[in-house]
Amino acid sequence: MAYNRFKNKYVEEVVAKVLMIAATVALFVFASSIIYTIIANGWNAMSWEMISQLPGGGFYIGKEGGLLNAIVGSMYIVGAATILGLIVSIPVVFYLNVYLNPNSKLGYAARLCFDVLFGIPSIVYGAFAFTIMIYLGAKASLLGGIIVVTLLIIPIFIRSMDEVARSFPRAIVDAAVSLGATKWETIRVVVRQIMPGIATATLLSIGRAIGDAAAVMLTAGYTDSIPTSLSQPAATLPLAVFFQLQSPIPQVQERAYGAALVLTIIVLIISILGRIITNRFSKHRIK
C-alpha cells in the first residue's frame, strides 16, 4: 500500500500541530496584549512628578501630586518582608535537606504544610491577620503589612529553594562533615551551592510580594504620606491602582494607569534580573 498522506492519522497530526502552535501563540498574544495595554495607557500619565512627589491637596479630584507614597510604601513592605522571609526560610530549607533524612516523616509533613500554606489565598491570610490585629488592638499599619506579606512569601521561598536543595548532591555535605564540620557549619557550603535557587526564590517572592493587593488591603491600609514608623499605615502600588481606578474622574484614573505602569516595569525588571543573577551565581555550582 502506498503512502497516503491524506490518511486520517496524518491529517490529525497536522491539525493537532496547528492547534498547538495556535495555543503557544496565544500565550504571546496575551502577554503582549497585557503589556501593551499597560504601557499605552500609562505612558501619558507618566511624568517625573508622578514618581517623585507625594499626593498633594486635591489629588483625588485631579489636582497635582504623585505616587511616591505608594512606591515607598511598597518598597518598605517588600524589602522588610523579603529579608524576614529569607532569615526564616533558609534555615528551614537547610533543616529539611541536611538534618532530616530524605524520607523522614517530619520532612514530608512539613513540605505538605508549606504546599498548603503556599496555596492559601492571600485574602484569607489578610482576613486572618486582620482579626489577629483587631484582637491585639492594633490598627492597619506598616508592621501588619510586613508580617502578613512575610507569611505570604515564606512558603514561596521554601518551596522554590527546596526544589533546588533536593537535587543537592549529598556527597558535598558528607565531604564537609568528614572534615569535622558540624552540620550547622555546612550551611555555608550548602547556601553557596543553592545560591541560584535562593536568588530565583528571592525574585519570585519579591514579585509576588509587590503585586499582592488583597492581604495588604486589610492589614497595611492606605495613606497619602510616607510612613515614619511601623505603626503607621502604608500605601502600596497595587492599591494605588485599585483605589484610583474606582474614581469617576478621568485624571485620577490616568494615575491608576501610571501606577500600573510603574508596577509593571518593576515586575519586568525583577524578571529580567532573575535571569541574569541566576546565570551569575551558578559559577561555583557542582553539577
Binding site: T24, I210, D212, T264
Partner: peptide, 22 residues
C-alpha cells in the same frame, strides 16, 4: 516561551484586573 511564562506568572493580579477592565 519560558521567559514569557515567567512574565505572565510575575504580573501582579491588579495589572490583570486593569487589563480586564480596559
Amino acid at each position: 516561551v519560558f521567559p514569557v511564562l515567567d512574565i505572565l506568572a510575575g504580573i501582579p493580579s491588579v495589572i490583570y484586573g486593569l487589563w480586564g477592565v480596559l
